[in-house]
Design a protein around this nucleic acid. Sequence first.
DNA 1: CATGCTTTGTGTACATCGTACATGGATAAA
DNA 2: TTTATCCATGTACGATGTACACAAAGCATG
Lengths: 294, 294
Amino acid sequence: MGGDLRGGDRLPSTRQLARQWKVALATATKALAVLRHEGLIEARARSATTVAVIAKPPSRRQVHEAPASQQHLSQRKIVGAAIEIADKEGLAALSMRSVAARLGVATMSTYRFVKSKESLVLMMADAAYGELPPSQKSDGDWRTQIDAEARTLWTLYRKHPWLTHINSLTRPLLLPNLMAHAEAVLAALDRCGLTQAISLHLHVLLYSYVHGVAIHIEREAHAEATTGLSEEAWMETQSVPLSRLMASGAYPTFTALITSFGDGYDLRLDDFFEFGLTTLLDGFAVTIERSKQR
Amino acid sequence: MGGDLRGGDRLPSTRQLARQWKVALATATKALAVLRHEGLIEARARSATTVAVIAKPPSRRQVHEAPASQQHLSQRKIVGAAIEIADKEGLAALSMRSVAARLGVATMSTYRFVKSKESLVLMMADAAYGELPPSQKSDGDWRTQIDAEARTLWTLYRKHPWLTHINSLTRPLLLPNLMAHAEAVLAALDRCGLTQAISLHLHVLLYSYVHGVAIHIEREAHAEATTGLSEEAWMETQSVPLSRLMASGAYPTFTALITSFGDGYDLRLDDFFEFGLTTLLDGFAVTIERSKQR
DNA sequence: CATGCTTTGTGTACATCGTACATGGATAAA
DNA sequence: TTTATCCATGTACGATGTACACAAAGCATG
């Protein structure tokens, strides 16, 4: 009877309760109703981490207006829950079951609003790219504009690292918000008198750079989660094979470089991103100059 | 009796045969031995796609020397089979079961030589990077040397696209062959009078670039495999939403750019890689020049 | 009010995965 | 011959995405 659920737990569905405690379905339903009236549990739709039960609809429907559009589950909620999971635990941990559980709903219920997991991920991407702030349409030089765009994209990837799993250069996503980013970059390049083809290539190159570095955000997190080691701790475990490699004498430059850093190699992604962006845009500048000279 | 196996099929293990045909294990063993003597099937160890049976060891042991090290299964063979699968069908299609099947062996047998799938993948990476040709130690200018290194890496990724799944910038793999690549790049940069930190960053940047573009090799293949559409065909399916987006008027530069290409956007990865590499190395040059001037 | 239809939510089941564990067969040792 | 050791394998478990059928409830029509 007196269960052992802790403070902020989700409650399973009525059916799960009934099965777990081997009682009839009606019994479980009534029990939940009683608890709800007592205020011990709450039917909160928005957040699933707090005490939240998707209430039996009947009582609510009597209060609100009739139309069946008043549903407690929706595509938007599913996408939102999925994004939360992917943000926190990575795309690998995202399963239809976990999404459903977070919403306090049966697994298959999600399929009423989502065609497949693949389409869910696509909708997640759409939603996430939707968070891109509208780009400032300054008429300044191309570099500040493009620099800003790259940083905006980087910030987004920082927030949603799983986004890097989704798109392909050869089959780009036609998401409005991502298009807006492309438009901004292309517009900035357009004023530099480049070939159309070069403009496009530069844009893809910029995108590819941000994307390529952002990939390692999730890998870093994943490595830390699975090994349970922070990066410093991990580096220590590698010090033995590392020093063996260095002692082999086959890699003199590398050895000299590593030893010159007292505390080992510690790449901070954000700093590296800055450095790489600068270097890459230097390359852009060369290409643009060259193009102007002919 | 007369089965329906086609020309180059693998044969299942003795045990699988026995179960399938409901005969005693000894019977199956003898049957295979007969077939082998008749030359109808061959115990070929190297290639599993042709008619290949991992021969029952007994007869071979009598021929060769005694020690138990003479085994028909080995870590090298497992890694090789796994690489073949990953090359052909992608890392996602690589399962312990598929590796075992390709070798005509029970699934769990592989675990005698491989601790886990994760470690298998690491060994695959080691083997694949082992294919990197030793870098030419020319004392020419940094650019030709680094350019060559990048292309070598690209070629490798073309051959083994799954490699891009494996490593993390923040936790680099300490594989000898990959270290040799790093050494070559660093050595080339070393002659340019750069800070150690900048040298390292440039090296990582180069690696990250090649890696970041190579990622899309597999994505391209995967997309083609799952949708069954070549890139041109896929582009046609996108033409409707594309033209709708273009007609919205929100993306003028983009629209102008696309319409200027008659036959649509068709990014060829290899060409793009070339272009990006040039641009990136232009950036390197700027950094190096700047560093020399002070 | 009764009866059937439609919508909505759910449970069950299947094929796939990695892999822990125990077993079965063969070889080596006594 | 008996015993012990080791290699190879089958079984089983808990995950996954999702097809399918069923149950409950709302609604329309008689």
